[in-house]
Amino acid sequence: MISVKHISKKFGKLEVLKDFSLEFELGNSYAIMGPNGSGKTTLIKTVLGMVIPDQGEILVKGVSVKGNHQYRSLIGYMPQIGRYPANMKIGQLFSMMKDMRPEIKVYDTELVEQFELEGMKDKALGTLSGGTRQKVSAALAFLFNPDILILDEPTAGLDPIAVEILKKKIKKEREEGKLILITSHILSDLEELTNRAIYLFEGEVFFADTIESLKEITDEDRFSPAIARLMQWTLKKNTAKKSMSHV
């Protein structure tokens, strides 16, 4: 579904992505992990077309994303911090988003209902709390029933009830065969929601495979220690890199 082919990206002198390749398949849910500055957000943004790679290409459904904008109707994106025009009301934001995808007529309003956003539709976005804004972002990401969901720290800032609602929804979508990319620092969430792990380190893919094989390779039974092990290995990166990285 998404093929990332040999992309590299520099921000000034800093090489954020180095000859980076990955495949994301429909029906899978990917946990994208890595320390701060390892390139997680940049990867997501290149897929969304917000960051333009210096080299390489990204194909979504076999079509290059370069200069293309239609493919984004396949993607539901929930940003890390959703900030919206302060004077716009929730209802207007939703109708604007619908306006931008005039070809889609059927909406998935499950989250809208469960987060009880309907009752707040006349509230201005500038007055919302961080949590409510996250709910809005989440509801928007799922609204168009997209094939691909990209969720950047989806549970951050949400109250426990909302987190459960969102997780349930993510699982449900995954079962329906969607492609889901999640970044998070909360490993338990990732374990629960994903079946594939991608670990980035200094702009390179350090690990990319199923969670089972991650556990196997690291000799750990549980997810968190496995990741911790990966982190340790990254310190000895140069030697481990070749044997570990999968493309």
Partner: peptide, 11 residues
């Protein structure tokens, strides 16, 4: 941020 949100949309 709003501009970023827009950029993630099919426009």
């Amino acid at each position: 941020e709003f501009i970023e949100l827009m950029l993630a949309q099919p426009v």
